[in-house]
Design a protein around this nucleic acid. Structure first.
Length: 824
DNA sequence: GAAGTGGATATACC
DNA sequence: ACTGGTATATCCACTTC
């Protein structure tokens, strides 16, 4: 039996004590296929270099005798092979020890207390990861496969109740190339629950919406006359759950997706199903939904990949998004230009029929948005999975450190490397206590309005340093060696080998691929190429942090410290060269330099950049980010020094680039942010402050006359931990407590919205009330505090901008504020 | 009782 | 606890004179 096949999800099962792999995927006729494959699990024993052959033979005989019978599972060492492998870049004789069941590999490894054995490795990788590495059946790639149709009786009748076109025992698989357009088009169902009580399982499920290519449905038990046609009314909540299961099973999609569905929708469904003693058997083998533990729950369905889009968006998109929160509403608005429907959610007992009809629409829209977001994210999900070579289920939930590690693990074979082990608890807590090492260099700017500016920046600066200077766990030397690179950090010297290590080499490849895909995308734009280029970009960006991350297998803070140390040296040298060549570096942060062109032309600057590049070693590269016609740098709130990480630029297409200013900070009120951005724009466009100042005066007048809508004055601050864990009584915690009192749901991660109202004992005025005592929730009636908004929001946001022009709003700040304000 | 200081907290930059 | 360090700024509690 031959067919084309694309693997989507991987699972495993035990039969007669042995491990078997189950792969769910599609054939070229878009039918679901299940492949069964055997797998011989093994781990490595790294031997000391000088162990003699005779001793090795004896050792093998010893180890071969090991048998275990734990948890009713008889396991033994099946066979042993001798290989020469690298461990952290050094070659060793290694024993490849095959065991009956991979779950016992760790226990058997623990029995190997022989002095000839230097390290035991490879027993802590997941079975799926090992399978993908060894059999090279990579996720989301096409294969021509041959196999035998599984007999109904085999593996205890496994093929019997599996809802797939075919179950095949895999014999051969050969990778084939397919054009992207004739490639795999996944079937997706998006779903969303509406409930009465947000606490998992504590309320009733009111309705569930489902959206697929040819499916738009809201299931409910609420009988409403003239309900929209997409509504299907069931007898009660238990029928509703059963109908949901029925539809999903009938549709049998590749992906079932929700938004925060790991944390809400799926656990809720499970809890309510349990309440009614219904089996939530969504799996294509009728298995129930399982939740794997971890920091967050992950809901897994056999044969249908459950994707919580929020989790993928957190790792893959959040750094690019401008949205203030990652709520479905904001993310959909930014990525799709579509919003959730307006609907005020109330307890179901308080809803009138027309409210219900709107509620159904609202519920359907949530699934529609989720469905569209999935399609938008699909190229990225696909390319993440292909790049890291891990299933989409995992890649969509893992953070970037895990993704970097997946990439490493799956590419180790190219370097004949054995995987390093994961740090254990004790080691992790030790690592967490390490002192911080010094990071990036930031040049203090001189405040001012500048003209004719260029911005240079290093491409993938830190990764390119790691690759160029060979900084990693496998290349750091214990002591000084001939030709070794010496890096001095805090009077301590570290040495790195000149012989390239696998991590720097992989990184070099990642950077090169990123460059290549970026170029391919430019030449021939497609969502897939963009996603591919982006996956490699994110991988490069996260790789530096990976080496300094306590959970990393290839943890090496010395390499991280050396990376930043070298980065500081280089950027300072470049700054010096810039200043000596008739330019003036006015600002620099980490990998970028803003410089004044002075008398030089733009083309001269580009030639100068080429010169600088000629003297850069390895794959380090400096590029032109853009030319700007004006830029402004301001002082810190107090003192005359220039503030770092705060500037605004305007290029020759009149596009603004604003960094660090309150304009881009969500914890400042809308009025202050809009005013500041207006003023920055005015100044950068005109080159003077006059129109900006008159605009400011207008706004101040409006505030004093109470002409400002309180919605413009709402301050939003995120609640980052449970209220009880806060030591400080800040305004936003006070607001959160008020919300709890008023029975408004308060959750970690939520933006707390409030404004500052007039003091109650305003007239007496002597001992001023604290800010937190004047907090009112966003919908609470009251008068905003004119003094607060003037002196704590509006003026702080703009006074250091005007100070650049010697306009002294400072006197106002110095206590003469009240009097001075009268002048406006 | 005003002024200064430092801790806790949030958010941004790269 | 789930990449890293650098930096600004607010509010509030506390100390100091």
């Amino acid at each position: 039996m031959e067919t084309e096949f694309i693997p989507i999800d991987y699972d495993y099962f035990d039969f007669n004590g042995k491990n078997y792999i189950q792969i769910i995927g599609k054939n070229n006729n878009h039918k679901k296929i299940c492949l069964i494959d055997s797998y011989e699990p093994y781990f490595w024993a790294v031997l000391h270099k000088d162990v003699k052959q005779k001793t090795i033979d004896k050792l093998i005989k010893e180890i071969e005798k090991i048998q275990l019978d734990e948890k009713g599972r008889a396991t033994k060492v099946e066979k042993i092979e001798l290989h020469t492998k690298n461990y952290l870049g050094t070659s060793y004789p290694c024993l490849k020890i095959f065991v009956t069941n991979f779950k016992d590999a760790h226990a058997i490894a623990d029995k190997l207390g022989y002095k000839e054995i230097f390290k035991r490795r490879g027993y802590d990788l997941s079975l799926i990861t090992k399978y993908i590495i060894d059999k090279k059946l990579l996720p989301l790639n096409w294969y021509k496969i041959s196999g035998e149709i599984l007999d109904i009786s085999e593996f205890g009748g496994l093929a019997n109740n599996l809802d797939v076109e075919q179950v095949l025992k895999l014999e051969k698989a050969q990778k084939i190339e397919k054009l992207e357009k004739e490639a795999f088009n996944p079937k997706i169902i998006a779903y969303d629950l509406e409930v009465d009580n947000l606490e998992i399982g504590k309320g009733e499920i009111l309705m569930i919406s489902l959206v697929s290519e040819n499916l738009k449905k809201v299931l409910t038990w609420k009988k409403i006359q003239n309900a929209p046609e997409f509504v299907e009314t069931l007898k009660d909540e238990s029928q509703l759950i059963e109908r949901f299961i029925e539809i999903v099973k009938k549709e049998n999609p590749d992906f079932l997706t929700g938004y925060f569905s790991d944390g809400f929708d799926l656990p809720y469904l499970k809890a309510r199903a349990e309440f009614y003693k219904i089996k939530l058997n969504l799996g294509i083998d009728d298995s129930i939904v399982k939740f794997s533990r971890g920091r967050e729950l992950s809901g897994k369905i056999f044969g249908i990949v459950h994707i919580d889009l929020l989790r993928f968006i957190e790792t893959a998109y959040s750094q690019y998004l401008e949205s203030e929160t990652l709520s479905l509403n904001e993310v959909a608005n930014e990525l799709l230009g579509e919003k959730k429907l307006d609907f005020e959610i109330k307890h179901s007992t308080k809803l009138k029929p027309e409210n219900w009809r709107n509620y159904f629409e609202y519920n359907l829209q949530d699934s529609m948005l989720t469905y569209k977001l999935f399609q938008k994210a699909w190229p990225d999900l696909l390319e993440f999975s292909r790049t890291m070579q891990e299933p989409i289920f995992d890649v969509s939930r893992n953070g970037m450190s895990k993704n970097v590690e997946s990439y490493i693990i799956h590419n180790l074979e190219n370097y004949n490397e054995i995987a390093e082990k994961r740090p254990m608890h004790e080691e992790i807590s030790e690592r967490m206590q390490r002192e911080k090492y010094e990071g990036a260099f930031v040049l203090q700017p001189t405040p001012g309005l500048y003209e004719n500016i260029a911005m240079f920046d290093f491409t993938s600066y830190w990764p390119s340093i790691i690759a160029t200077f060979n900084l990693s766990k496998s290349t750091i030397l214990e002591k000084k060696q001939k030709n070794a690179l010496e890096v001095k950090i805090d009077e301590k010297k570290y040495y790195f080998s000149k012989k390239k290590g696998f991590f720097p080499l992989m990184l070099e490849e990642i950077i090169k691929k990123r460059k290549q895909f970026k170029q391919e995308y430019k030449d021939n734009p497609s969502p897939i190429l963009k996603a591919r280029s982006n996956a490699f970009k994110l991988l490069a960006n996260a790789s530096y942090g990976y080496q300094g991350f306590f959970g990393a297998r290839y943890y090496c803070p010395e390499a991280s410290a050396a990376t930043t140390s070298i980065s500081r040296d280089f950027i300072k040298k470049i700054i010096n060269k810039i200043n000596k060549a008739g330019y003036k570096a006015i600002y620099s942060d980490t990998d970028s330099i803003a410089l004044l062109l002075n008398k030089n032309s733009q083309s001269q600057a580009i030639r100068f950049l080429d010169e600088l590049n000629k003297n850069l070693p390895g794959i380090m590269e400096l590029e032109l980010e853009d030319f700007y016609k004006r830029g402004i740098w301001v002082t810190k709130r107090d003192g005359e020094f220039g503030a770092k990480k705060k500037y605004a630029l305007i290029n020759y297409e009149n596009k603004l680039k604003i960094r660090g200013f309150e304009t881009v900070r969500r914890d400042w009120c809308r009025l202050a942010r809009d005013l500041q951005s207006h003023i920055i724009k005015e100044i950068l466009t005109t080159g003077n402050h006059e129109s900006a100042l008159s605009y400011l005066k207008q706004i101040i007048k409006k505030i004093k006359n109470r002409e400002i809508d309180v919605r413009q004055l709402i301050i939003k601050t995120q609640l980052k931990k449970p209220i009880s864990e806060y030591k400080a009584n800040t305004p936003h915690i006070t607001a959160a407590r008020k919300m709890v009192e008023q029975e408004i749901p308060v959750d970690i991660g939520m933006l707390i919205e409030y404004y500052i109202a007039e003091s109650k004992n305003n007239a007496k005025g002597k001992s001023k009330e604290l800010v937190r005592d004047r907090v009112k929730l966003k919908d609470e009636p009251g008068n905003y505090d004119i003094e607060y908004y003037l002196n704590h929001q509006i003026l702080p946001a703009v006074e250091n901008i005007f100070r650049v022009f010697n306009i002294n709003l400072q006197e106002i700040a110095d206590g003469k504020r009240q009097k001075k304000l009268g002048e406006f």
